[in-house]
């Protein structure tokens, strides 16, 4: 799958008051691929993601979606384009069941009444489409689910809406070994279904396990965006910690434009 990027950012700048968090950042996301977004704490990953999701407006730069310039002024705009973000704290309601959470704020209704049956069917179809088989009942409260299952529900909620780009913020940070494997498998399946997936992670093993491309942020600048197959573990670590690694990185001319 080598068509053009579905989502492309060019020359993004973002400041909070006197602090410039993003400097001239370029970032592109391709359908059918997992793009890992890595960087040390404070490198600007979360800010970049929030700019994509419309939570922070960008100061300057171009936001292209499917090759066309768009203006994203709020989370609603991003959702309308088909960009969904799964935040680290998941944003699930513990006192609601899986179906209720997946449709929260976008409930299906027939007239005044909630159309529970259709919602349950759609939720089941989505989960089955992601080959999720670990959930016992769609009607169990989210509070009774394990961390991995909750992550699964949050991801399923994001893909339920025919989204095209799914951004996952540290989906495996709080999970055990087996659950991490499950979630990574799910991430890979999303990309194989043709979605563009952005994976934010600190864990190099996770990054190399599933991603096609790696974008490394260093102090608010895009150090490099490269194919995962073309770099080694230690090169990525160098990019994260010093912004450059041999030929790659800031100041070598290749970096941001790749």
């Amino acid at each position: 799958m080598s068509q053009g990027p579905i989502l492309e950012l060019r020359g993004i700048n973002k400041s909070f008051g006197p602090v410039q968090v993003l400097h001239d950042v370029a970032f592109s996301v391709h359908p059918g691929e997992v793009t890992a977004l890595v960087g040390d704490n404070g490198a600007g990953k979360s800010t970049l993601v929030k700019c994509i999701g419309g939570i922070h407006p960008i100061d300057s730069g171009e936001y292209l979606f499917e090759g066309e310039r768009v203006h994203v002024n709020g989370p609603r705009d991003a959702a309308e384009l088909g960009v969904e973000i799964v935040y680290q704290d998941l944003a699930l309601c513990d006192n609601l069941d899986i179906v209720q959470n997946m449709f929260l704020g976008r409930e299906r209704k027939s007239g005044l009444v909630l159309d529970e049956d259709t919602m349950e069917e759609m939720a089941a179809k989505t989960l089955a489409g992601l080959s999720v088989r670990t959930v016992k009942s769609l009607r169990q409260h989210v509070s009774s689910l394990s961390g991995g299952q909750r992550q699964t529900v949050a991801i399923a909620k994001a893909v339920l809406w025919n989204s095209k780009v799914v951004i996952l913020d540290e989906p495996t940070a709080a999970l055990g070994v087996a659950q991490t494997a499950q979630v990574l498998e799910l991430v890979r399946r999303l990309a194989d279904k043709g979605l563009a997936v952005v994976l934010i992670s600190h864990n190099m093993n996770d990054v190399f396990a599933v991603s096609d491309r790696i974008a490394a942020l260093y102090l608010g600048r895009m150090a490099a965006q490269v194919k995962a197959s073309e770099v080694t573990h230690s090169q990525v670590v160098e990019l994260i910690t010093s912004g450059r690694s041999g030929e790659l990185g800031i100041g070598n001319g290749i970096g941001a434009a790749s």
Binding site: R76, D89, L90, A91, C93, N95, L96, G105, R106
Partner: peptide, 15 residues
């Protein structure tokens, strides 16, 4: 129920 369970989640869901 959603606001009572997790107001932040409800807000992000557009409620």
């Amino acid at each position: 129920y959603a606001v009572g369970g997790n107001a932040e989640a409800a807000r992000r869901a557009g409620i």
